[in-house]
Design a protein around this nucleic acid. Structure first.
Lengths: 218, 218
DNA sequence: ACTAATTTTAAATGATTATTTAATATCGTA
DNA sequence: TACGATATTAAATAATCATTTAAAATTAGT
């Protein structure tokens, strides 16, 4: 009928669009079905209910994001930590600024974070924590690394936070500022900044003040 | 009836609670009125409609947040940039981890960002941009500061991003991890980390690589 | 105490929500 | 072609939403 896709495929595709634009709660099955050119009952018939459709959308989004922009991309032999940081930041930023399938994951994530669903626990366990773990491992490959657990945790958050901010500040770009997206060059420039900024941060923290902040202020 | 507060005051108070827990769209006037022990029509009678009530909640939240935790707190004479960074990070983190009135602003913000309303533009202009501007000014007080506009912008985002991440990753703490809040000591520890990490980042960026990344990763 | 303004109330309105039902249509296969 | 499974459809269901209405209750001013 509409092209050669099946109704189920068209509904999944429409669901990706609507869920990523509106999040789970504000998306309606009526709009999804209408976008797919399918009947209102299609979601329940083909996927069971709205939640199971949402789960399938997440799986689809994660597959594309990690396949196209893996955070643990291959590093050149004997490369330093800054290359690893750059690969990580570049992957996250590309996901955030991608349109279409590769941008789905970040869009879903920033809505899920503010309005969690039953899917959150699986998302965190399967999709998010492994990436944090990879970053923590990377930090520990620094020369003369001696981060205690707490400092490692804080540094990991500092780096992820810098990247994730571009995801969560999305509406400030899209609703307020004239320029709505980044060019490939700007993304690269930002990823390099985060890599160098973080390298400097790690070096500063490594000056063994991690457990002794006495005399910090006053 | 219920204490000595007026109905209007009770509705505003209930609205603060419900809006900060659920965001604008998922909050219902029915639940707000029920929480306030007021009739279903109270919102429309006393505030006009749901949106005007939301505006008043924002104004209330911002007043308390800035009064209790200003980002431009007074610095000791001749203090370095790290003290300024610490004051900034500490203020933002305290807002994020506060319960009650002082925590309202951050809770509203993280929901508004993922599901913007008509109030966003005013929020950004009146409440958010001035704080970014203060941070940018602070960075420029660094000794031998020579950041170009783009680097300054990126550095500002790196610092805000580190703080804001604790706001946007809220559900990971509240839904997943056993420990739901931070002690005063942990907040202070985190603020100091962000101050030092950022100081190191700024110093690294200042090595005049800000406009020349050639030979970075070929 | 009387009147007028203000506030509160219960009920209704009309729109929208996810999901279900049963009838109809389409498709693969013999 | 004919049958059985699969897919699609329109309509109905029951719940929930913000808002409105008009009557009832309360309060304030004289």
């Amino acid at each position: 009928m509409s092209g050669k896709q099946t109704t189920k495929e068209r509904v999944l595709q429409a669901a990706c669009k609507i869920f990523s634009e509106k999040g789970f709660h504000e998306a309606t099955v009526a709009e999804i079905c209408e976008t797919a050119g399918a009947n209102i009952a299609s979601v329940n018939y083909h996927f069971g209910d709205k939640e199971k459709l949402y789960d399938e959308v997440w799986h689809y989004a994660f597959s594309h994001a990690t396949a196209t922009y893996p955070v643990d991309g291959v590093l050149p032999e004997n490369s330093g930590i800054e290359e690893g940081l750059y690969i990580f930041a570049s992957a996250i930023l590309h996901r955030i600024f991608s349109e279409g399938e590769n941008g789905l994951f970040a869009k879903l994530l920033y809505r899920e974070m503010a309005s969690p669903t039953l899917a959150l626990e699986k998302i965190a366990t399967d999709y998010l924590f492994p990436q944090s773990q990879h970053l923590a491992s990377l930090i520990q490959t620094m020369p003369d690394s001696h981060f205690d657990a707490q400092s490692l945790f804080l540094c990991t958050h500092s780096i992820i936070g810098q990247c994730a901010f571009y995801n969560f500040s999305r509406p400030l770009r899209e609703h307020m500022i004239e320029k709505k997206t980044m060019t490939e060059e700007e993304i690269d420039r930002t990823a390099r900044h985060i890599a160098y900024f973080s390298l400097g941060g790690l070096k500063e923290i490594q000056k063994d003040r991690s457990t002794d902040y006495s005399g910090f202020i006053e």
